[in-house]
């Protein structure tokens, strides 16, 4: 898988940007020409930044050039990168899982259908196991056919205990059982898989709220982490997904998946512009090891094709 990743043909955003905007050195002196602005806009829009974030960035550059703060292409490159890094970073260490004061730490995983929740859980479980945690998985996606079996296969591969729900069962009950099992087994971390649901389905969002509520009653302070999984290929709908999941279960962070393809996950820029929802992990492949801790500066560089 990794050698496939190296083959990826992400065109260097920055190299193209330089080419179109800055070949005319005089443009720097005179400010950007209309055609240059359009070209720059194009590059940012094609990376799924969305209109608002793109306009912000372009205006910032125009202003910087006009005021003479941005004198050459290096200045401009640095300005874009710095601005993106600022926007995407958060004060806390993205890789550090908030632990329970006592008893098992509970991590709830949520997101729309097909974003990669189950695979992300396997990756997260692997990471935490390596850090010495005793992880227990809870298969609370009782809706999608084969979802429980999928997580069970992963539990088997990773040698982890799992509590599974019956098809069509109550996901909150599965979560409750998993917490009870964790206490008796002495597990230190419980990761709960939930069914994919579109953020617009009120009934299903209520079901998710109920899962969180039941967990909280069983173990005060839980879930300690609620991670929203976001498909890296998603467009501007990312913002809506973020908003509605935030209203329902106040996620503590994002996992952005499928970044081993041609998508750069640029819609998180649009999302972060609206929501203080820190990006925590990145999914970069199908194997259990393909999980990276989010690094704002590196992600920004990747978005600009510098990586």
């Amino acid at each position: 898988m990794t050698d496939r990743i190296t083959q990826r043909s992400k065109q260097s955003l920055w190299s193209r940007l330089k080419r179109v905007a800055l070949t005319d050195v005089g443009a720097l002196v005179r400010g950007f020409k209309a055609a240059d602005i359009e070209a720059m806009e194009r590059l940012l829009l094609e990376a799924d930044f969305g209109i608002a974030a793109t306009t912000d960035l372009v205006e910032m550059l125009e202003d910087g050039v006009r005021r003479g703060r941005l004198k050459n292409e290096d200045d401009i490159q640095a300005a874009v990168r710095t601005r993106l890094t600022e926007l995407l970073s958060s004060p806390d260490d993205p890789g550090a899982i908030r632990k329970a004061a006592a008893g098992p730490t509970v991590i709830l995983i949520a997101g729309v259908n097909g974003v990669g929740k189950t695979t992300s859980i396997a990756k997260l479980a692997r990471r935490l196991t390596r850090q010495g945690e005793k992880v227990l998985l809870a298969a609370a996606d009782t809706y999608r056919a084969g979802a429980v079996a999928q997580l069970e296969t992963w539990a088997d591969r990773l040698g982890l205990p799992i509590v599974s729900g019956a098809a069509g069962g109550d996901p909150a009950a599965v979560a409750f059982d998993a917490l009870a099992a964790a206490e008796t087994r002495g597990s230190t971390v419980v990761i709960i898989d939930t069914a994919g649901r579109l953020h617009t389905q009120e009934g299903l969002m209520d079901e998710l709220k109920k899962v969180a509520r039941v967990i909280g009653r069983k173990a005060p302070g839980a879930p300690h982490e609620t991670l929203l999984v976001l498909d890296g290929t998603v467009g501007q709908n990312a913002v809506q997904q973020g908003k509605l999941f935030a209203e329902a279960v106040s996620p503590t962070g994002l996992i952005v998946t499928k970044l081993d393809g041609t998508a750069r996950g640029g819609s998180v820029v649009a999302l972060r512009r609206e929501l203080a929802l820190p990006i925590r992990f990145l999914g970069t492949g199908e194997q259990a090891d393909d999980l990276e801790v989010f690094d704002a500066a590196r992600f920004a560089a990747d978005l600009l094709g510098e990586g």
Partner: peptide, 27 residues
């Protein structure tokens, strides 16, 4: 998002797709 073009192009170039089914349109 914008990646749709690259995805569709990639599959079409390799296979010559004859149709499309668009999912998750109830959101």
């Amino acid at each position: 998002g914008q990646d749709a073009v690259r995805i569709a192009q990639g599959f079409h170039d390799a296979l010559g797709i004859t149709g499309v089914i668009l999912t998750k349109m109830d959101g």
